[in-house]
Design a protein around this nucleic acid. Structure first.
Lengths: 255, 255
DNA sequence: TCAAAAGTGTTTAGTCTACACCCATGA
DNA sequence: TCATGGGTGTAGACTAAACACTTTTGA
């Protein structure tokens, strides 16, 4: 959940480097304590399902994009804000999938050293070093529309293929796994996949997406019929530049 | 989430009626602030799906059983504890289904007056009157094994049929509704229903349960075949005391 | 004209629906 | 013996799986 991002961003913005005397001063008290949001942002590109990850400056610490909840902010709104800040998108498909609340899911030690490396010395009981319960959301976005945006603390914000994910901090690997499971079970009943597609796509693209999410090969004719029978696709054009074969149709999602 | 129960129980236990000077003193600091658990405990009896509700002393305030999370307690453990305290059971099927986190989901006014009616005057910023994010769990229990247990604050703890639920405090009606939806979608893939059955039951009992959960009639032969084809039932006895008709088999859930 | 991939047809098997039928039981 | 509800049989409809076939395209 890269706990410190929001907090340190705040500090930098205010150029305020004095030591904290009070644990619940302005910087911390704007957010609910002990609660965070972690977002698993899925995109589809190059026939691969990818996840947006943050990398910590000059180190190999990777983490899910995340953030806190303002004291007057609805949970849903906070989640939208978090994803929006990293992708630049506004209309985002978001699904709350699980809460991660083991008492010792996050070791505060590495966090403390990162904070100190940024010239900040947190007190023993600083709220950022206390236990955090994290609410997991997954977002489905159109890869082509996203401009990954790092912040002042994390200088990396990039896509990683699902089979290419670097070691993540805390229990973020568990979170990604759970998000994927959830996506999988929602695939059919919520028609969730179309949020991952660009405006126009071929049947083959869509099938490749289904195959990566479900992690198994599907039969082409069966897939085509199944999807078309849903009556949610509109044929756009018959043209396609490329291979030495029949030109596939382009489809558009309707409704 | 009957926010005050745990808290007031604590106070009564310690017979400590001095006014609070510090918002984060012993009474409050044992729990995570701003986070609560609400449990929708389902039972099945008399061919009806029922929910366990708490009633506040000498009033018509009904609420879901709930509680807080100790600072060193896993979320799952807290949920088990909460359900355990109200049902007396230990092996409980629990499923986390949704988090309710709108900023203004709970009006603090009625809570304040209840606290005051109990001889306690909370400060303006008391943690119990602040915003709470609530994590919803539903429990599936064997109705016949439960002894509903009120606590010192709520004197009522009783089963209510789903179509017979009194007006609930805060957004607890939304929570019940969402729990039911979740139960419904999990019915088939998680074989969740058997947790609601006593050890031995007839096919008709089971069908009645499915029918109330799904809220629709099912065809008897189809249901029988579908369930038996799962190979998770064992026939126990052919005997049955009662009606003027063929004796139904008793079944037992295996594995 | 050939290979490759797209789109459609077709056969078969399996599953689900709806109803029919027989069985056991107590009045 | 009759009404009632429990268990199974079965014909038809629907759905899914597997494979075959045709079409379009660039080399």
């Amino acid at each position: 959940m890269f706990i410190f991002t929001k907090y340190l961003s705040y500090r930098i913005k205010h150029m305020d480097n004095r030591k904290e005397k009070n644990e619940s001063d302005a910087a911390g008290s704007d957010y609910m304590h002990g609660l965070a949001i972690d977002a698993v942002i899925f995109g589809f590109h190059d026939h691969q399902l990818k996840v947006l990850l943050m990398q910590y400056k000059r180190s190999n610490i990777y983490a899910l994009p995340g953030g806190f909840i303002h004291k007057e902010e609805n949970l849903e709104d906070a989640a939208h804000r978090v994803v929006s800040e990293r992708t630049g998108l506004t209309d985002i498909y978001l699904e709350q999938f699980h809460v991660f609340g083991d008492a010792h899911r996050a070791d505060p030690a590495p966090l403390r050293s990162i904070m100190m490396a940024n010239g900040f010395e947190p007190g023993e009981n600083h709220w950022l070093l206390q236990r955090f319960v994290s609410i997991g959301y997954y977002a489905l976005v159109d890869f082509t529309k996203v401009t990954p945006m790092p912040d002042r603390i994390f200088d990396g914000c990039n896509w990683y293929g699902l089979n290419d994910i670097p070691p993540l901090m805390q229990d973020h690997e568990t979170i990604v796994k759970k998000a994927l499971e959830s996506l999988r079970t929602n695939l059919d009943n919520k028609l969730v996949a179309f949020n991952l597609m660009p405006e126009e796509f071929t049947m083959n693209d869509l099938q490749a997406l289904y195959e990566t999410i479900l992690d198994k090969k599907l039969l082409r004719p069966a897939f085509q019929r199944k999807i078309l029978s849903l009556n949610i696709l509109q044929r756009i054009a018959k043209k396609w530049t490329g291979g030495a074969h029949k030109a596939p149709y382009l489809y558009k999602f309707i409704r």
